[in-house]
Design a binder for these strands. Structure first.
Length: 366
DNA sequence: AGGAGGGGATGCAGTAGGCT
DNA sequence: AGCCTACTGCATCCCCTCCT
């Protein structure tokens, strides 16, 4: 495992080039992890079907990606970053051994579910996955489920990464119990796909993945054969402060502190920071603007009069041990500035708490 | 296509400090 | 001297968008 603890590029070089296969650049060996195939985002089902035509739609679970290698009695499990996490996931070892095929490599998602099958927040899965000590004890309290969506190698077939996706799924379905397969449909019908997406979201999941039926497994690449579809949620928040950037952002105010309005106190509740989504032009503009609003500063940060409103996209609201409001945005990024809005029109902490409750509700029974 | 810019959370290991 | 807690730093998981 030591040799794979380094950077992704190292691993890519370790894998053997397979020029003859053309589309699939790397061959696969058991117990040598291969860089996972990645996805791009799509706006909606319509765009997805335009790009892919008839496609597979699968639930997108907010867990941790796993690549499971089995050779005889030996099982090894790798993360997206190709870390060997075998010892932490006894559940996976058990089902992999139970599959009546000697050798395989499959990919999927490991996630912690509630008894009724709805997902816990990602934080819970992380709590479990990060746990190294007392694994046998935590697995009773935080059991891990697996849902598989691809097959890279199969006894009797060898490497199947060059095969079209639908053929890989067909091969996998013959040996993997259906309860371990990710919920999936194949369609070119917009309404059907939209219904499937709505069910995924209603079940508390992140959204869906849409996948070309004909594409090979393109290791390590973020191509357009796989597209992710998620619910788009944004908040209009107020910039409370900004930190000086590093590297190519040196000299610009980059990392924004974001706050929601609290009508009761008239103050703003910080929900986290972001530096994502900013073009150089926006960096330049906001540096000038924020300096004009400066009220104080320290070594890294310029604090400003709460005035500027930004539209912020994010993936979910998390419980935060760090911020006073007890909530923080996960993967916040700037969509655009809202010069048309004043700070008094920004979204409130009550709105954020409402979204958080709704989010929890979707992950809970009833 | 890859790098840069850094977000939040977790668990773990190490250290500091207080207490018995 | 030994034990407990608190804090910090590190590695790892999840992820995005812009720029070269």
């Amino acid at each position: 495992a030591m040799m794979f603890s380094g950077h992704l590029g190292e691993v890519a070089r370790v894998a053997v080039e397979e020029g003859a296969a053309g589309l699939s650049r790397f061959s696969l060996r058991l117990f040598t992890p291969i860089a996972p195939m990645l996805a791009n985002s799509a706006e909606d089902v319509e765009e997805t079907l335009e790009r892919l035509g008839e496609a597979a739609f699968e639930y997108k679970l907010d867990g941790a990606r796993i690549q499971v290698h089995k050779g005889g009695d030996d099982v090894r499990i790798f993360t997206r970053q190709l870390q060997d996490v075998t010892e932490r996931l006894p559940e996976v070892i058990e089902w992999a051994r139970a599959v009546p095929v000697r050798d395989f490599v499959v990919e999927g998602e490991a996630i912690v579910l509630r008894p009724d099958g709805r997902p816990f927040p990602f934080q819970i899965t992380m709590r479990r996955l990060g746990r190294i000590k007392d694994v046998e004890h935590v697995r009773r309290e935080i059991p891990l489920s697996s849902f598989l969506f691809d097959c890279l190698y199969l006894e009797g077939e060898g490497s199947v990464i060059a095969l079209p996706y639908q053929q890989r799924i067909d091969l996998m379905s013959k040996v993997i119990p259906s309860s371990f397969m990710i919920p999936r449909i194949v369609t070119n019908d917009r309404a059907e796909a939209e219904g499937f997406l709505a069910r995924a979201l209603a079940a508390g999941h992140e959204g869906v993945m849409a996948k070309s039926l004909t594409a090979p497994y393109v290791a390590g690449q973020r191509g357009f054969h796989w597209l992710k579809l998620k619910a788009a949620v944004t908040l209009d928040l107020v910039v409370l402060a900004a930190e000086w950037g590093h590297g190519r952002r040196k000299g610009w105010l980059s990392n924004l502190h974001l706050g929601a309005r609290d009508p009761e106190s008239g103050q703003f509740v910080m929900l986290g920071k972001t530096f994502k989504g900013l073009t150089d032009e926006m960096l330049k503009w906001q540096t000038e603007k924020l300096l004009s609003l400066e009220v104080s500063r320290d070594e890294w940060t310029v604090y400003v009069r709460p005035d500027l409103v930004v539209e912020i996209a994010f993936s979910e609201i998390q419980e935060s041990p760090r911020y006073p409001g007890g909530l923080a945005l996960r993967f916040a990024r700037v969509k655009r500035y809202r010069p048309d809005k004043s700070a008094a029109e920004a979204d409130t902490i009550q709105t954020v708490m409402g979204l958080f409750q709704k989010q929890r509700g979707e992950g809970q029974p009833g």
